[in-house]
Amino acid sequence: MSEKTFFPISSWSDDDKPREKLLLKGKATLSDAELLAIIIGSGSKNESAVALSQRILASVSHNLNTLGKLSIAQLTAFKGMGDAKAVSVQAALELGKRRRAAELPQWQTVSSSMSVFELMQPVIGELPHEEFWILYLNNAHKIILKAQLSKGGITGTLVDVRLVYKAALELSAVGIILTHNHPSGTLRPSESDKQITKKLKLAGEQLDIKVLDHLIITEHGYFSFADEGIL
C-alpha cells in the first residue's frame, strides 16, 4: 500500500492556498482577501488570485459594503478580472446582503428603534434610490407584515396615505412604523419627511391605528422620530 504524501501549505500554489486553508482550518481563519480569492477562482500568469483580491480590496479601503457597490465595469477594470469573475463577486456579495436581510422569525417583536434599524438596514440602507416601507404591528408590538409602499428616484418617493391604512385595516394592525432611506447619507429629516409623518399620524388617529415611529435609515445609522421626541 502506498503512503499518502502530505505537503505543507507553503508548497501549494497561491491560488490553492485559500481553498486548502479553509478545508483544514475553517472559514473563520481566512482573511477577506483569501475569501474573495476563492470567489474569483484564479489569478493570472503574473498575479495570484489572492494578490488580485488584495488590490481590489485596497481600492475600496477594505470596506466590503463599498465593494458590494462596484459595478461589473468597475470590477473588470482591474487587470485579471473578466466578466465571469466580476459576476461571481457580485453574486456572492448579493447573497451575503440577502442573508442579512433574510426575514427574521415571523411575528418578531419590535422592542426599540434599534430593532427596526437592524431589520430594515439590510433592505434599504444601501440603496441608491429612496424607498418607503411600512411595518404593520399587532397589539403585542409584533410585526404582522413588512411591506414596501413606494419606490422613488434619487430625490424622493411618494407616499399614498390611503394605501397605508387600507393594508392596516385588512391586517387588523393596531400600530405602524414608517421607514425610509436617505441615499445621500444624511440623517436629518426634511420638511416633507415631517409633513408625511404628521399626515399619517393624523389619519391613523381617526382609525385608532397609532404611528409608533418613523425611521430614516442610511448605510451606517438611523434617525428615530420617536426617540427624538418629534413624532
Rank of each mutant, 00 (worst) to 15 (best):
N63M: 08
S31E: 08
S113G: 14
A167D: 05
L149H: 11
L23I: 01
Q54H: 07
L52C: 01
Y165A: 11
V89L: 04
D15R: 02
E170A: 15
Y165L: 05
D15P: 08
S53A: 07
K166H: 08
D16M: 08
G229H: 01
I40T: 03
V50T: 04
P8N: 06
D227E: 15
L22R: 13
A102P: 00
T157P: 02
K194S: 10
I40R: 02
S61E: 15
E130K: 11
Q54G: 02
L127T: 07
I72R: 11
L35Y: 02
M114Y: 14
A77L: 01
F225Q: 05
S111N: 13
N65E: 12
L171G: 07
L207S: 12
L64I: 12
N46Y: 13
K25P: 03
Y222C: 02
L215V: 03
E131V: 09
L24D: 15
K21H: 08
S48W: 03
G153E: 14
G221L: 09
G221S: 15
L24E: 11
W107H: 14
L169T: 11
T66I: 10
L22W: 03
M81H: 00
E131W: 03
A49M: 06
S11C: 02
Y165D: 12
I144T: 06
K97Y: 00
S184F: 04
P18S: 05
G221M: 09
H141M: 14
T5E: 13
S113T: 05
G152N: 04
R55D: 03
R162P: 00
E47D: 02
G152D: 11
L163P: 00
I124W: 00
L207D: 05
V87N: 12
D32P: 12
A28L: 15
R100E: 10
A92P: 02
V161C: 03
N181A: 11
S53L: 08
V164P: 07
K199P: 01
I39D: 04
Y222F: 14
R19K: 07
T76E: 08
R188Q: 05
D83E: 14
E228P: 01
A101C: 03
